[in-house]
Simulated assay, not measured.
Amino acid sequence: MCLWDISDGRCIENTKSDKVHSDMLSFHMRSAKALRLICNGYYDEVVVIDPLNLEIVFTLVARVESDWISACCVIAPTNRDEDVVIAITNSGTVKLWTIPNPEQKGNKIGEDESKQIRCLNAQTLRCCPDNLRTVLIVCSKYWQIYDASDFTLLCSESNRRGERWTGGDFLSVDKVIVWSNEGRGYLYKLPTK
């Protein structure tokens, strides 16, 4: 990993990790009042890194059903002081971690909840910013909307013939966009119930 100065293109900091990250997102954690990098990939945990020095701050580990994390997102519920990380493994186990306030460096945090759903090799997991109870999960053959409170399936749509879904996101509380390997984006209006 490298930290670059964009004004002059100089590498400021670098580190080598034994973990191969496939996804990285930045999030302003309330627990640290600082920006953090949330990383997942070809390993069975979620690593939280300080982007200023590239050090691992803490690690989110599985207590049950350990498997590679294929996608994750971070939410900041308005009714709680802690941030929540939601992730899904390659084998379809949804995991939920509550980040303690304040965070403790080097800490390993076990998941609070874990539930198996019918969703293999997810590529994208997104919570709707306007309704944190609505979660979009995109796999190559289908995309699904879940209720985050108990992960019951609310709706699902299969891929088009000859195409694979490669990602998606919420546009509003009732609209999602999902894109395919053919370079096409599809806009869906979600059911009202």
Rank of each mutant, 00 (worst) to 15 (best):
Q104D: 12
L171P: 08
R10S: 12
L3G: 07
T78L: 10
L3D: 10
L60M: 07
N40K: 08
E111F: 07
F170Q: 04
E182M: 08
N121R: 02
T15S: 13
W4H: 10
F27C: 05
V176P: 01
E113Y: 02
Y142E: 15
S114Y: 04
D23Y: 13
P77V: 05
I38P: 03
E103H: 08
I137R: 12
S172L: 00
I117H: 02
N181T: 13
L136K: 00
I49R: 05
L154P: 02
M29D: 03
C73D: 15
Y42M: 14
Q116K: 06
R36P: 00
R164C: 15
G92N: 08
S22I: 11
F27V: 05
Y146M: 04
L120P: 06
I145Q: 03
V74E: 03
L96S: 10
Y43T: 01
L153E: 09
P51K: 03
R118S: 15
E163H: 09
E13C: 14
F151N: 01
S114G: 04
I177Y: 04
A32Y: 09
D169G: 13
S26N: 13
C155P: 09
G162M: 14
I88V: 06
E113I: 00
C128N: 10
L136V: 02
I69P: 09
I99H: 05
V84E: 07
F58V: 05
S22R: 14
L120K: 04
G185N: 07
I117L: 05
T124V: 01
S156L: 14
R126A: 03
G41N: 00
Y142N: 13
K33W: 05
S31E: 00
W97V: 04
C155R: 00
V20L: 11
L3A: 10
S149Y: 05
L25I: 14
V57N: 10
K33V: 04
Y142T: 14
L132Q: 00
D44K: 06
L54I: 07
S7M: 12
G106M: 12
D23P: 02
T166F: 01
D23W: 09
